[in-house]
Design a protein around this nucleic acid. Sequence first.
DNA 1: CTGAAAGCGCTAACAA
DNA 2: TTGTTAGCGCTTTCAG
Lengths: 366, 366
Amino acid sequence: MASARTPRTADDGSGSRRKSSNAATLGDVATHAGVSPATVSRVLAGNYPVSRSARQRVLRSIRELNYVANTHARALAGVQTKTIAFVLADVRGPSFAEAAHGVEQEAARLGWLCLIGTTQGDRERELAIVRLMREQRAGAVVLIGGVADADDYNEQMTELAYSLRAAGSLLVLCGRPPLAPGVPAAVIGYDNEEGAYAITSHVLAQGHRRILFLGGEERHTTSLGRLEGYSRALKTFGVEFDPSLVEHGVFTRASGYQLTKKRLAGARDFTAVFAATDVMAAGVYAAVNEAGLSVPDDISIVGYDDIELAQDLRPRMTSVHVPYEELGRTAAKVAADEDHQREDWPGLQVTLKTHVVVRDSVARLD
Amino acid sequence: MASARTPRTADDGSGSRRKSSNAATLGDVATHAGVSPATVSRVLAGNYPVSRSARQRVLRSIRELNYVANTHARALAGVQTKTIAFVLADVRGPSFAEAAHGVEQEAARLGWLCLIGTTQGDRERELAIVRLMREQRAGAVVLIGGVADADDYNEQMTELAYSLRAAGSLLVLCGRPPLAPGVPAAVIGYDNEEGAYAITSHVLAQGHRRILFLGGEERHTTSLGRLEGYSRALKTFGVEFDPSLVEHGVFTRASGYQLTKKRLAGARDFTAVFAATDVMAAGVYAAVNEAGLSVPDDISIVGYDDIELAQDLRPRMTSVHVPYEELGRTAAKVAADEDHQREDWPGLQVTLKTHVVVRDSVARLD
DNA sequence: CTGAAAGCGCTAACAA
DNA sequence: TTGTTAGCGCTTTCAG
């Protein structure tokens, strides 16, 4: 019934400074149930013996007062907040979304909440957000996707890793290269280089020798890794690496489109295009079609990520499958595992496998 | 350089019970700067006069100690946390992602943090998450996308709206029908019915009379709205509504594919398909192609949402454009606006416009 | 302009 | 089994 606290109904409206909400507190529940706050806390936590009758009464009071525990108070009192923060460049990227979904799913399954922040690929903003997350005392901070590498990147990230750990939290790098050994961070990745090597090899095996590589920003770790795989495959096949066949843009459809259009306007000195992401590849398709050329007869195209879109493009696109959802899921699992709080936690590095999915976008050159 | 605080390096490992992190607190800063905690707080808040010299010292100490304010403590002390929670069915839905992006962008611009939760379209889970968000004392809770309407839905959501408001928070319904008038919630929407009416009219105007409607779950508000627009257009054109031309599934590519495949296996008694979402429509394309039929010569297809994919399908798909990003942006703006905390806040309802984007997926029947 | 002190709501010793 | 009692880190009166 009426709680013991003064109901601020009638006397309200005359600006009482503190706008404390009138939600029931643990103390209210205790009073209502005729027990001490500690007892209420104990039935809530369920980690301590409480008599049946007391528990019953408390539970009833909770229901009647519509009590909801205050997370902040709880956090302040020293309980690790079960929230895992994840940070990515842009929720709209299908592969990011897939990974985010994995994180979200697993986190929910484990009863964790997710905090999300996006950076638009801006390093500064990323750093700022991670700091913000630390301020929120998130149980872990998961960074999804590559970044534009810069001289001070490693240093700053390393510092963040330590600072997070000092706060009982954990830095999880997801789809991004590891920091120096010994730095307290978990790395959940897949091999960009390997996948790119495999798919480039596939294209080369079909007889192509002039393959245009469309990458993201020049120092973007993901782009870099894929470019390396590309050039290693070239080497394996005894084809000389031609820097003029490498273009840099960003990981969007528009960028893939622009870049391709530009190249198509010049001498057509390539027979295939390897777009660093499927999304970029969609732009390549559009530009090639617009130029009145056919895929794969005139230009072969391959992508990377194997998002759903790859099956909707016509002809269906050959791509490198990356288990993004599992990546996210694993990240969440690691984040939620309290093991990493142990003094002697050895760090963790998981590398997931990728594989080429062959479809119809590469022509055999004879 | 070296901080003044004790580095917990050597003497550690002997399990100190409370695993309080060694992060600097406001008190530490105060001591370091030789002022009182209150002064530090004032400097931080910047809402009260503080002498130049004191401010200088405090600022320096903050920097030197690498101090980060504890959000939870702050929240507990009564400051509204600048976090806006948003809840959606699945981050992977491109239209949701777009809206989420809008929320995120605007929130970031305003200095707010985003909390995210996904429901997989499960009503129970949605309710649970909103409660969780309330527990987090989020400044606002934004619900993105429709839900499967049920008898008690309105009642429960209304209760939530009041309970959120009581906690100084706000319920924002985004792309979902309003609750009863007077309920303290903001509604940012677009007209599902109108858009569906427009695009169905377009198809009818091209001479089609038998249009298969592929919807989501039967009581899903979004699906429902679109179905209504569909049947109203039919009526306008004097075409009788045929329930056998309506199929229900879920808003995924796979569902669109299955449904279409099933219908294609039977008598082909339709010349066009209106998929309730573009994502479903992609599945329709796949099934139609697989059956050896051509779009739009054999089957015309239209979608709804106008996501990027619509331009990548071949032929490019006619669809209803929904300003999802703006939807999200508006939601965030409303959420962050403290106006809604006023006693006499009148509620808010915004309806954004949609429009049909005509591409190449509808054949003219003569 | 500054400091002391009283909480915000909860948890976790420590006693009983 | 239960209650009492300190805090967690910050904000904000209320006095200087």
